[in-house]
Design a protein around this nucleic acid. Sequence first.
DNA 1: GTTTTCTGCGTACTTCATACGCAGAACGGT
DNA 2: ACCGTTCTGCGTATGAAGTACGCAGAAAAC
Lengths: 250, 250
Amino acid sequence: MSNDAHPHDLPAVVRLLWDLGEPSRRGPKPTFTRDDVVAAAIEVADAEGITAVSMGRVAAQLGSSTMALYRYVASKDDLLTLMSDAAFGLPPEAPAGAGWRPRAEQWARAVRDEWTRRPWLLKLPVTGPPTGPRNLRWFDACLAAFDGTGLDAAQRVSATLLLSTYVRGERHLMIDISSRPPEELAQTLISYDVLAPLVSAEQYPALARMIADGEFDDDFGDDASGDDDFEFGLTAVLDGIAAAIERASA
Amino acid sequence: MSNDAHPHDLPAVVRLLWDLGEPSRRGPKPTFTRDDVVAAAIEVADAEGITAVSMGRVAAQLGSSTMALYRYVASKDDLLTLMSDAAFGLPPEAPAGAGWRPRAEQWARAVRDEWTRRPWLLKLPVTGPPTGPRNLRWFDACLAAFDGTGLDAAQRVSATLLLSTYVRGERHLMIDISSRPPEELAQTLISYDVLAPLVSAEQYPALARMIADGEFDDDFGDDASGDDDFEFGLTAVLDGIAAAIERASA
DNA sequence: GTTTTCTGCGTACTTCATACGCAGAACGGT
DNA sequence: ACCGTTCTGCGTATGAAGTACGCAGAAAAC
């Protein structure tokens, strides 16, 4: 990785994510690295959730004091930003000789697995489109899937953002349901028929009719991992991209 | 609206959002209502952003003390949950005699306008699928658009969630860009060509090639409101739902 | 009229992020 | 080898925010 970039030319978030700071030349050798701090924070988030990630808790995990962390990261916000990139694994290799659709589908399932594996990633503040080393690996892999489809560059970026946006949004909605402990789940509505006394036919005609028809009976939406919904949405999104590709080839 | 529901049968979040608590029968008349508190909080969020919404700031806006708020809401989390429903307006009337696609498209644009109008809504924690009175009006309106399309009930819900997920995700990504002040925007990357020194062709082949080809030159992505991207995605999502409808009719 | 319930809100406690500054370690220059 | 400069670890302190607890007074029920 080239570090020949002029750091002052780049946005602060890029300098942060790509670790473009100057290494120190004097003084005691640091006990840890910034990556150590980020890894400790990720361990805490994995074990206890993102709300447990305080500077004190990360310091305890690392084996240092709270204030020592500020030698490695400028603020908690910066730490969260670094976590939002470092917590992603690498995208899978594209299957050899596969067309755009199986590649895009594999990519979508793989990135969904990342968010399922680390649901707290969905709760981190979004600071913009992907710019970190890991996020860009995923971005690049999806862009590559659309190479040779006839979509121009802007459309390939749009298709990538569409697919990513869909999967993230679906995980964002579903993960708070499937990641809750069972006693808490009962307090989250996953079947609308219990709303029957509240939703009048006048104000909620379609919903009231579906409830009256028994469409939300016991097995509707019981698929707590959201797999059926995900498949419907994924097929629709890929069908939509296929339509855009057809138009681009005409 | 019927309040004959047995409140103890319903999840806590439904009881909260539908205001199923018992009204008080003794003691001084309260100076405000819960809706007053929520409205004050929304005013603060509109004027100063969601991070300014503290219990103290809301109390100041309302004209009461901080601790008095706890007579109306149990916690700040409950206040945020109430805001997440109350801040939505009503969905537009469907155009008379229109087919599913223009109705769904109008709905998508309208809900996008809601999130554009109140971008802080996107930063509120998501507690599950829509269950509040206002959110369900939007949910119902979109479900209604898919009536008569041949999609079964589960598919109509999936299509609605797909459309909503897409629009929300697109706004979630784009809003942090378009809502920033100009001096902050320069610190957010909206053109990838500045990453050229960082993204090696070995690790980011598709991205490096696009940068080398000048695909991210000055006017790429300058559409800060994301309108072009939004149109691509909306067309693709609706094309995908159209394909699902065709399969359902076969 | 008394008892019970309710409202407004002050005080205090807890948690968390981080500014500031000190002591000691380590490197560069002389 | 010594001195000055830079750096690391971290203790202390400050401020902000959420909210538990409890008191005084108001109002309804009995």
